[in-house]
Amino acid sequence: MSVYRIKKDDLSLFLEKLREDFAVYAPVESDGITSFAELEPGQEPAFGILKTQKPPKEVFYPQNEIMFRFNEEGMTPELYDGKPIALFGVRPCDAKGFNIIERVFIDPKYEDPYWSARRKGSLVFALACNEPLLSCFCNWFGGGPFDKTGSDVLVIDTGEDYLFEPTNEGAEKLLSNIGGFEKAEKADIEKAGKLRKKAESSMGEPPKLDSVKETLDNSWNSPLWDRISAKCLGCAVCTFSCPTCYCFDIQDETRRDKGTRVRLWDTCQFPLFTKEGSGHNPRKSQTSRLRQRFMHKFSYMVETLNEFGCVGCGRCVTLCPVNLDVRDFLEKIAAEKDK
């Protein structure tokens, strides 16, 4: 696969052309909130933002999604039928997150039509992180600030230019169809290599997490859970901001003789998540709910998907109202083995 170069000033032209066939989503700041939204004509994306407050998962998997409408006459299914989606400027951690979530929504036996309607035919342009933040830890899970997992094109900001590195033939073909690129020169590639090295080394050595699953599996009744969860408020900030949390609830919203069936994000952190019809709740305490979240990400998903259910974006680290840092937890668990 070749690497292509485009002047920064020409990017808006590229995005305009991309908009002809795609609904282009990019990081934007609106009313004090950073999130991914469909670009209006001429709107400048806010590329300076590494961690949007709201994760880009909501582009493929909206927080509230109507599945169908109903009235006395019957049901009318509702499915996304807009242009294919192009996400421009997601970060490598979030791009990797799409792959993890996708394995839940599209598995060999079942395919979720709502996820697929938005996701199929989509393009992910990930923007490499030249300057990872203190709260970033993608390298703990095999990711990295220049990682290409989950991206169709990795975009690298080299100062005056962007380099576009397609990861598949379809994406390469699309770039050549749109045009406006030159082939990157050796000097460009070297520059990108240096940026990558600098970004990677700024993140420091990740701790060894090989033993985490095994330790967790043997720690179900450990007093550690009480200590870790003591300050947890039990809100949904971590799960709703997480690129790999996918749990949902289904509700009927009715008004007089019509209504909608809606799928909406749910969270294992709320007591209602596991409350049974009888009134019994198997996860009564916040300790058990926090344990569920961490076990799911660092044990169960390792078992079912063979990878950790965390991409190290660090949103939960920066947004948690009480600064409950998942990295502290992982380091404690990793250290358990040495005891």
């Binding site: 709201k54 927080q63 408020l233 039990g234 809100c235 949904a236 900030v237 969270t267 709320f270 109202p321």
Partner: peptide
């Protein structure tokens, strides 16, 4: 509001 209820829980 995304109804994370962080305000209530804090």
């Amino acid at each position: 509001c995304i109804r994370c209820y962080a305000c209530r829980n804090a």
